[in-house]
Simulated assay, not measured.
Amino acid sequence: MKIILLAAAALSLAATAAHAAPTHRSTGEIMAQIRDPHGRLIVVAHRGCHEPAPLHGFGAAPENSVQALEKCAAMGVDMMETDVRESKDGYLVIMHDETVDRTTTGTGKVADLTLAQIKSLRLRQDEGGSDAAATDQFVLTLDEMLALAKDRITLNLDVKDAIYPQVIAAVRKAGAQNRVTLKTRVGVGSQPLAPMAPYDEVPFLVIPKDGDDSGKSIPDMIAAQMSGKIKPVGIELPYRLPREALPAIVKRAQSLGVRLWVNMLDGNFVLGAGSDRDALRAPDAVWGSLVREGVSMLLTDEPEAMLAMRDASGRR
């Protein structure tokens, strides 16, 4: 059913746009667009392009895999969101969960496994699970992911452990400072983080933690985080934000010249705005509506359909 919805949604927008080969852009060009608050919609693939992309002839791929990145690059996705953890022996590996159980053929906590043990596993198809087929894809290290993405796609590194200095050191070693973004949460009392070491070495996003869940404090948090000499390139809106809070947030973000990022995965980030599944039925009514309201970075599990919507609408 998902594939049928995806194909129908994309075809109703523009089959020719979806089938056209993407124009190659350097990662520097993509980052320049991300830094431009008035630029086009930035499509961010959640753990890579793991869902089928039927208009391009692509099947599913394991999340956070070589295949997931290859598909994203071939389709012209702007950014791949991916996850970083630390192995028992201090290596940085690409893994979302605390354990390898869901996504691989193995079991156990990442922090209890050596790199050799992790490398002996195989990733399971798509989002994994015990019923998902094992593939020939393996768990990547951060170094491997950075090398794979070079000159092809930018990365958003979701750092899962207390390893920001190690991650940023790896980014510097790879010469990838201008083709990755990092992020972390901030509160009402947080000092501006983007100018602080080590965050000042990479493009940085912040996620406001809304104390009373009304969203009313977020405009002031954005202003505080934008007050430093080095400014974040984006603000990721928090989980379960009331949609009625969005206009004031957009107004403050636009006045300060910073992009807003929304996760579209399950409909529980901007409440009432819809989910990826809703968008497969009505892309412009869901994704397009948020873009018109002032959101300009969308994290999605359905990047092919989102790209088709963006390109068909002329928001290039």
Rank of each mutant, 00 (worst) to 15 (best):
F269C: 12
S296M: 03
I230Y: 06
L11N: 08
Q225L: 07
M196A: 15
T184F: 10
A21Y: 01
K119R: 15
V295D: 04
L140E: 02
L69Q: 09
V291L: 13
V250P: 05
L265T: 11
S65M: 10
V286G: 00
K231P: 00
R310N: 03
D101S: 09
D136V: 13
D161E: 11
M31Y: 09
C49F: 12
K160P: 02
N178V: 00
G234V: 07
F58R: 05
D143S: 11
K173D: 14
K2Q: 14
V84F: 07
P303Y: 05
G59C: 12
S87H: 06
L140A: 05
R179W: 14
M306N: 01
A223L: 02
A305H: 01
L307K: 05
T23L: 10
A273G: 12
P165T: 08
R35E: 14
M221T: 09
R277F: 01
A61S: 15
A273Q: 06
E29W: 03
S227V: 04
P242T: 06
E144G: 05
Q191T: 10
Q177S: 14
D278R: 03
M297P: 08
L92F: 06
A305E: 05
G187I: 10
M145L: 15
K88W: 01
I3L: 11
I218M: 07
D158G: 10
D158R: 00
S12P: 00
D301Q: 01
D158T: 06
V270W: 03
M309W: 14
M145Y: 08
H19K: 10
M264W: 05
A74G: 00
G189T: 11
M31R: 01
P242H: 07
G28A: 13
A32P: 01
E98Q: 15
D301A: 04
V159A: 06
T154F: 05
P165N: 10
A149S: 12
V43A: 04
P22Q: 02
F269R: 02
E63N: 04
A147S: 08
L142P: 02
G106M: 08
R281I: 15
S26D: 13
A174P: 06
L256R: 06
H38K: 14
A7M: 12
L13H: 09
H19V: 15
L115T: 11
E51H: 10
A53C: 13
P37F: 04
D284V: 09
A15D: 09
K173E: 14
T82Y: 02
G189Y: 12
Q67C: 13
D161H: 13
Y199I: 08
I118P: 13
D158M: 05
L5W: 07
A223E: 13
T141Y: 05
I94K: 08
A111V: 09
L123D: 03
D266N: 12
I4R: 11
E98T: 13
M196I: 01
I3Y: 00
A223P: 06
Q166M: 09
A68L: 03
A116R: 15
L265S: 07
H46M: 02
L193N: 00
L155E: 01
D83Q: 03
L13W: 00
T27M: 03
S289A: 12
